[in-house]
């Protein structure tokens, strides 16, 4: 009597054949790294579609003129970029805005003079980015150091600090708009006495409005920096402080030799995130003042979109390129210090 043996599951599967089975086997036999990349492939494809394609399409659009309205779009190569950097396109920017500030050189100190600095979209964006990110980092660091301490009510303080971050941009913009509006504002008179803002037409004065927008951004986003930095602070091994204390290190030495070097990678990432966001500033400007008064690069993209789409695309691509350069700079720093 013949004896039938029941094949186990593995044997049953191994008898199957066909492309699907071959593919499955191939996947099963991949190494850990290979399998990880395989799993990441859909993400890369998705990112490529949602991030890279629009960027390439924007670049393509920036090579054309007459994209809006009747008639054929005209391929002009890099003319939109040339016009942007030579000032030829300034006439399409809102109000008296220019892309670059006027630069003149003469024998008078400091020899190189910048004219209309606050009318330049590039200069305004860079000034806003540098000032806001600097103060947000400083304040955020301070807040994080405080929150890193054990004290009663720490949870409440944390919640209080995060409130500005939770407020939508338009509401935040309206708060600052109303604080300086001639009918409802209460701050203009006090600050104007010190010459900090213009006494009248405050929200239409570029220097005043840029200051208000920058302060508004710092108020909101310092909490974001604080939370990121706090996460970094809490990942530092507390034993290091105990050792330092035993060794007789002062508070400053502990900060300089332990906290700061170990928090630096986190700080770099936090600054990177904020720089990217600050370079794209638009909503706050639009709700507090207007793009004509505070001309940022993103403002220019929006303002030219419906009339000069090729120029708008060129502006968007240049903005993306500047952000890309800033990102690469931070990543290179991290790479050099061995953090990635």
């Amino acid at each position: 009597m013949a004896t039938e043996t029941q094949p186990d599951a593995t044997t049953r599967e191994s008898r199957r054949s066909g492309p699907l089975v071959a593919l499955t086997r191939r996947i099963e036999n991949l190494g850990e790294t290979g399998f990880a990349y395989l799993l990441l492939t859909p993400v890369f494809l998705l990112l490529g579609t949602v991030a890279l394609y629009p960027l390439l399409r924007t670049f393509e659009l920036s090579l054309y003129q007459n994209l809006v309205g009747i008639g054929q779009a005209e391929f002009v190569g890099v003319e939109n970029y040339v016009n942007l950097f030579t000032g030829e396109s300034d006439r399409w920017l809102p109000g008296s805005t220019t892309f670059l500030p006027g630069v003149s050189v003469d024998g008078n100190f400091p020899f190189v003079h910048l004219d209309g600095l606050l009318r330049s979209a590039l200069a305004v964006t860079l000034i806003f980015t540098l000032v806001s990110v600097f103060f947000e980092t400083l304040i955020g660091f301070g807040q994080a150091l405080v929150l890193d301490q054990e004290f009663r009510g720490r949870g409440w303080v944390r919640a209080a600090i995060i409130i500005p971050w939770a407020i939508p941009i338009v509401i935040q913009g309206m708060i600052f708009f109303l604080m300086f509006h001639p009918d409802t504002g209460f701050l203009t008179a006090y600050l104007a006495e010190w010459g900090i803002v213009a006494p009248t037409n405050t929200l239409n004065d570029t220097a005043s409005a840029l200051l208000i927008v920058t302060v508004g951004d710092i108020w909101k986003t310092s909490a974001f920096m604080a939370l990121l930095i706090l996460a970094g602070l809490q990942s530092i091994d507390r034993g290091l402080y105990d050792v330092a204390e035993v060794a007789g290190a002062t508070k400053w030495q502990r900060f300089k030799l332990i906290t700061f070097p170990l928090i630096l990678p986190t700080l770099g990432i936090a600054i990177l995130f904020r720089t990217i966001q600050a370079m794209r500033i638009y909503g706050l400007i639009d709700s507090v003042s207007s793009c004509t008064v505070v001309p940022s690069l993103s403002c220019m993209v929006v303002e030219t979109f419906n009339n000069q789409r090729g120029l708008s695309a060129a502006l968007a691509f240049v903005t993306a390129a500047i952000i890309g350069i800033a990102v690469m700079g931070v990543i290179y720093q991290q790479y050099k210090s061995g953090d990635i």
Binding site: P94, G95, N201, T292, N307
Partner: peptide
């Protein structure tokens, strides 16, 4: 006209500056 949206911001900015005394 097609250029009016651009011109409108220029006009408003300068008219505002003149009346504000800037």
């Amino acid at each position: 006209t097609t250029v009016w949206p651009t011109q409108a911001t220029m006009i408003a900015e300068q008219a505002n500056a003149a009346v504000a005394g800037d």
